[in-house]
Nucleic acid binder design. Structure first.
Lengths: 238, 238
DNA sequence: ACAATAGTGTCTGTAAGACAGTATTGG
DNA sequence: CCAATACTGTCTTACAGACACTATTGT
């Protein structure tokens, strides 16, 4: 049976709270980091002063959609407008928010420039992923963050996702370093290059010199909207 | 800035509608089918009489969580209690429901027994996937269904998901047929069997005879909670 | 010339696909 | 013995990983 009442225009039953949270990843000093914000200290605030993921209630008058709401949160905290943004999932139950039954929609974003905070008022910090997981976060944000990291680590095995963490143009050695950082293991240079170039998601963009050594070919993404899937994982587990 | 008001215990702002929809897949005559329900005909009902995915409002007093709500919908429509159930994603915006800003949480379920409807009142039907996509469905259910089919087709390339569509115990030839149906192309028998047995997610369960020919070894899933990932896709696109 | 970094060539092992073969049942 | 289905063995090929090699820059 549909739970809609007979006179459906009434819709008088109790509605859950609806929020959006964004797990924003970026690189600081070749480390995978996530953006955290401090909860306000107010008397009636839940988890006052705790670290949390950026997010908040959906505003039915300002936000045309959940995605638009996530983009707004991201813009408010980082100033970044068009990043890689993907839905992570939703978590909803009666207990995750002391203010009542609530459902949150988590997104995860990859951005290149960790330009810290265009936002006024809120305290924000870039924190290394594993360190962030060890903090006591507000709500069930530990779960959300864990899911985001798992998803990212998982997808890195067979997608071009890490490329969204680099400012363009970037070089293949740079990209390989990011893969190695996220995966936590070294990769063979030759195999890595073959895979990246065969996947045909990069376009050449000039030459980039470093302090020392031979300059490298620069690349941009052919399509900044979506990641490329590789036909195999980097290495089947042993 | 968090949109929470200063005195947060008030929370007087307008809340979106929150629903759950479930895309329930099963096999009827070796065809991949999805369960549709007819929307009620009432005067004030949205999309009266249209076909739709089973779903409805979250009931904050009956449903402990979104997942529990999805399980309830599934149970009400099919009587199935412990299927494969995975979150597909959420869709929320101001226009998808004429009754107001609404967010739905879509789940997708794979069940073995298409026992039609333990539910009273509602008209339900198992419809072949591609045919269901051609119907004019209520709300944005065309989008949800499309996403579910894409997800299933995609995952079939590298997971054991189709095994959840078969009643246990099942045989490898049966399983292969399901893979072929969902993928829409034939698979090599030898390669298929090697892959399935190497993945080590099956346990032997007796022998199953057919009308004719040699009986086949029966198998059960080692773990009915989650699917197994294969290290490669079935065949890199050509 | 040398250090440092970028990029390539070549070998090898692994595993998937192709396909023909063998095995086991009922009539 | 034959049809029908289940299962296996062998060959080939593609490709990822290993690793040594060459290339190009600054000092």
């Amino acid at each position: 049976m549909s739970p809609a009442p007979v006179v459906s225009s009434a819709l008088t039953f109790e509605r859950p709270l609806v929020t959006v949270d964004v797990v924003i990843f970026s690189l600081v000093d070749e480390q995978l980091c996530v953006l955290l914000v401090r909860r306000p200290e107010g008397e009636h605030e839940p988890f006052p002063g705790r670290w949390a993921l950026p997010g908040g209630f959906v505003d039915v008058h300002r936000d045309a959609s959940l995605l638009a709401c996530a983009e707004r949160k991201l813009r408010e905290k980082t100033g970044v407008v068009a990043p890689y943004l993907e839905q992570l999932g939703s978590w909803g139950d009666a207990r995750r928010d002391p203010r009542g039954w609530s459902a949150t929609h988590a997104y995860f974003a990859l951005i290149a420039q960790p330009a810290i905070s265009a936002d006024s008022g809120t305290v924000t910090e870039w924190v290394a992923c594993d360190q962030a997981l060890r903090r006591r976060l507000a709500f069930d944000h530990h779960t959300l963050l864990g899911a985001a990291i798992d998803r990212l680590r998982g997808k890195v095995e067979y997608t071009s996702l890490p490329a969204f963490l680099l400012p363009e143009p970037f070089t293949l050695p740079q990209l390989q370093r990011i893969y190695e950082v996220v995966l936590g293991r070294p990769l063979d240079k030759s195999a890595f290059r073959k895979r990246m170039l065969d996947a045909d998601f990069l376009v050449e963009a000039g030459t980039l010199a470093r302090e020392q050594g031979r300059p490298a070919v620069g690349y941009r993404l052919r399509d900044r909207e979506q990641a490329t899937l590789f036909p195999r994982t980097f290495k089947p587990a042993e």
